[in-house]
């Protein structure tokens, strides 16, 4: 029994050591403070999901970093933003994209379903704290363990790539140009998220909670935070969520600046679909946004 216990302990210790060393290397090498430092003149951050990633062309917006990432729930945005904010005291303004689909219960899937976990844990898993890990484990234990183990091995390769300036080079989200042009349909488009949402509009408490956390964290750091809605095509139907959306804005973010550019006039050829701008639309909108904030 002694020999058995010893061997089991050694074997488990080897596995545990591999995991701990890997996480440590990721924390210290991949996400080390130096790697997420921005040049002093960058003072504006744009955060959020695919809408800002497609809408804010930072070539036309002064001193701004776009950290928008497709399919990213606010929980992950929160931990990424925390890391960047902590290491860049020059940041004075943060714009967080807040669109109608973000209130929907379906957004919970963006936090813990298998597919999103695979990407998010790989991108920023080591930035999560105990609370987030506990939530993910509680909601999808196998998905989380699987994504975490995959990230351990996938990120090993990234450790050997020079990650200095990773934020400005877009490793934590960036402007994604797209040349596709939206072909307008005769019937109004339904948001994609409709497929997974409940029609009685159940709210994703977790997504809203983490948006609140982003806001609070920024406020604590004396950073001016603003929620923003980028342009959407007129065929994009928000009517069935708008009431609830506005109610959440009123109740949960009542003293927060709200910039609604949903109806900003972008020609049809400036959209890649009813929700997202293409490169052409992004250029028009970014020029406008630059004037709006500067």
């Amino acid at each position: 029994m002694k020999k058995f216990s010893k061997e089991i302990s050694v074997f488990l210790f080897i596995i545990a050591t591999i995991v701990v060393v890997d996480v440590f290397l990721q924390k210290t090498l991949l996400f080390k403070d130096e790697n997420v430092k921005l040049p002093k003149d960058y003072s504006v951050l744009i955060l959020g999901h695919s809408h800002p990633a497609n809408a804010y062309d930072t070539n036309f917006i002064k001193n701004t970093i776009n950290m928008g990432t497709a399919g990213e729930a606010y929980m992950y945005t929160y931990y990424k933003a925390k890391k960047v904010i902590d290491n860049n005291p020059q940041i004075k303004n943060i714009y967080v994209e807040f669109t109608n689909n973000q209130i929907d219960k379906g957004m919970d899937n963006w936090i813990w379903d298998d597919i999103h976990l695979q990407y998010r844990i790989k991108d920023c898993g080591v930035l999560l704290d105990y609370e987030a890990i506990q939530l993910l484990y509680e909601k999808n234990p196998t998905g989380f363990i699987n994504a975490f183990s995959k990230s351990l091995f996938d990120n090993l390769r990234r450790l050997f790539i020079n990650k200095k300036g990773m934020v400005e080079r877009g490793a934590m989200g960036k402007f994604i140009p797209c040349d596709a042009v939206y072909v307008k349909k005769t019937s109004p488009d339904r948001p994609k998220s409709r497929k997974i949402i409940n029609y009685d509009l159940e709210i994703s408490e977790y997504n809203i909670l983490y948006l609140q956390k982003i806001v609070k964290y920024c406020q604590n750091k004396d950073i001016e935070v603003c929620l923003i809605r980028s342009p959407m095509h007129k065929s994009y139907d928000v009517s069935y969520t708008e009431y609830k959306f506005k109610e959440i804005l009123r109740t949960k973010f009542k003293n927060i600046q709200w910039l609604d550019n949903k109806d900003f006039p972008i020609p049809d050829k400036g959209f890649q679909d009813s929700e997202h701008l293409n490169s052409y639309g992004a250029k028009i909108y970014s020029q406008y946004f630059n004037k709006q904030i500067n």
């Binding site: 596995i15 298998d114 196998t142 363990i145 699987n146 183990s149 995959k150 091995f153």
Partner: peptide
Amino acid sequence: VFFIFYFAGK
């Protein structure tokens, strides 16, 4: 063990 974690199916 690595295969079990890395290639785990749904």
